[in-house]
Design a binder for these strands. Structure first.
Lengths: 338, 338
DNA sequence: GCCACGCGCTAATGCGCATTAGCTGAGGAC
DNA sequence: GTCCTCAGCTAATGCGCATTAGCGCGTGGC
């Protein structure tokens, strides 16, 4: 593959020749180097700048990266399909935040779309990844690959996860949502309305985000009762028999499914039973139920993740930060029947 | 800025040393060069491959780009804000298509988010753009910058516009929607229902997409009547007085505004007047009116734009292609009153 | 026995830039 | 007049890779 020659792009040497200086000088001017040694008089600087402006010269980013090791390009890796697909709507706000912050700090975003899906999973470290083209990388997805994380940490590649992650052979930098606190608040509000027996509907484990929710629940409820989303059909009866008056659904879609089931059984929400959801819908759940629950600060998480990443690239320390979720008043929480 | 040294990444030289061959050989193996000259026996190849696998070596994309001029990275430049913002929903499907195709052909996407907004406009050729990091670029937006286009053409930078564009100092490659044909079809269907006097509501010029719509209208209507979206409030009366029985709204939002206005005047849609829309909403227009009109094949346009771009990069010829729009049956077109 | 030839590999080069070491000439100290 | 300093540059180098030219050695022809 012979280096293509589209109109023979300008190089610093060309600029140097036109300005009657050396390539070194052009580089110095371009990077605004005003070191003690190598100071360049305004006249020379202006001459070079003028030629640059007139020719519209722009440094080759690849060469720049190679020589200096920096790029102002941030990678974005998404474990879940972001654009097409069902989960797209959930991830969109994160990307909005990421994009906003990138624009703000003059960075371009490299979407690692080339990662092939092998056995239903994507991996950062696939054959021929372009990780090193970016200065660092933001990781997005409900569940990250632990091998990827371990290797990223080991190689000391600058990255930030959107969402809290357990350690992986070292500290994993992240900007997450404070699910435990959000769930505790929800539990407190629910109890303040007279509910004494609460249940948690969901897995409560595995992806950190689920585990965190359940932890918040377990921490604030004396005898935490957990129901699996796949429970047999008599779940409703068992719940009621157990004296449960409020259910917290880990997943929005589970909340919808439960409410449907309750409707069929003639149990009214929130008249007979309150149903809360722990976050925004990650799967499309067509419904117009206005659930009480909380909002994940997705946009802000994306934004701060990029912020952290740039600081990390500048040599800062890895940070782990949790953002508060916002209580969302809805129509599915009512005082417990007495 | 001294080239950072995070764990001293592997290079081909390292692989070469480990495999007991030269760096050249590693490169040859890596790129599967089986040229007549420089053929490498399976044994050597395997040895090198094994070391590569064991070490997890991946070539530095920046160096690769510099040396070979290729990258498998496609740029995406959007003139309108894509992620946040009102117009986001309109552009989203294009990106879905772009992303799909990029994934399919193993390319990463470089989002040029660093382009600053100067005087309300974004430019591809801003200070310090990273255009040259990508092999080519997809352009997205209702209205592209003509200077950008001219320069892209002049520099023979591989790019494809999503949406038809007028020439800019040369042929502009694009994958667009065939608005003239779509509007002609709509006109034909409308006339088939007995409508004889039609009006076009919109600018009918400026961005190519508007001009094309109006052209399709003007081509198929004897005495084309055009109404500006900003017309005075007596527009409705004038329309009716002119004997118009169907209005084609260039913009979805204009169709909504008109329908509201009609409602207030006691004119029923489509009972008294049919209102069609020429494409999907580009601005958020909260309404549940089910307009008759057509759908822009946005996803497919994105997909084909990337396809064209990769072919262009491979040395193919610039292509201009229009995709058909799909008729969308709605509830706002009815037979003309007799 | 000598040369031609081709296989299997490597040394050398350059991509465009940032950086380091060092050169040149003017001016001042003595 | 000599030496030193320092401002203002430049030559040279290397980043990691792809590519070109070419080396050394074994084999076959005659």
């Amino acid at each position: 593959m012979p280096p293509p020659d589209p109109a023979r792009r300008l190089t610093q040497r060309d600029i140097a020749r036109l300005a009657g200086v050396s390539q070194t000088t052009v580089s110095l001017v371009l990077n605004n180097r005003a070191d003690a040694d190598s100071r360049i008089p305004a006249e020379t600087r202006d001459r070079v700048m003028r030629v640059i402006r007139e020719t519209g010269y722009v440094a080759d980013p690849a060469a720049r990266r190679l020589a200096a090791g920096r790029n102002r390009i941030l990678g974005v890796f998404t474990y879940e399909p972001v654009f097409p697909s069902a989960t797209g709507d959930f991830f969109h706000p994160f990307l909005v935040g990421i994009e906003e912050c990138a624009e703000h700090c003059g960075c371009d975003l490299l979407l690692f779309t080339s990662a092939p899906t092998v056995a239903g999973r994507k991996r950062v470290y696939h054959q021929d990844h372009r990780l090193r083209l970016a200065d660092g990388c933001v990781l997005l997805g409900r569940e990250l690959d632990r091998e990827d994380l371990t290797r990223l940490v080991a190689e000391r590649y600058p990255f930030v996860s959107v969402g809290r992650r357990d350690d992986a052979g070292g500290t994993v930098p992240y900007v997450g949502a404070d699910y435990p606190a959000a769930v505790r608040e929800l539990v407190a509000r629910t109890r303040a309305m007279g509910h004494e027996r609460l249940a948690y509907l969901g897995h409560g484990s595995s992806p950190e985000s689920y585990a965190d929710r359940f932890r918040g629940f377990a921490e604030s409820v004396p005898e935490p009762l957990r129901l699996s989303p796949g429970e047999p059909a008599d779940m409703v009866e068992r719940v009621l028999a157990a004296g449960v008056t409020a259910v917290l659904a880990e997943e929005y879609a589970d909340g919808v499914a439960l409410t449907d089931l309750l409707g069929k059984r003639g149990v009214s929400v929130p008249g007979d039973l309150s149903v809360l959801t722990l976050g925004d819908p990650t799967r499309p759940a067509p419904t117009d139920i206005d659930f009480t629950g909380f909002r994940i600060p997705r946009r802000e998480m994306g934004r701060q993740a990029v912020e952290e990443l740039t600081e990390l690239i500048e040599g800062g320390e890895p940070v782990q930060r949790l953002l508060p979720c916002e209580y969302a008043e809805g129509a599915t929480l009512a005082p417990a029947r007495t």
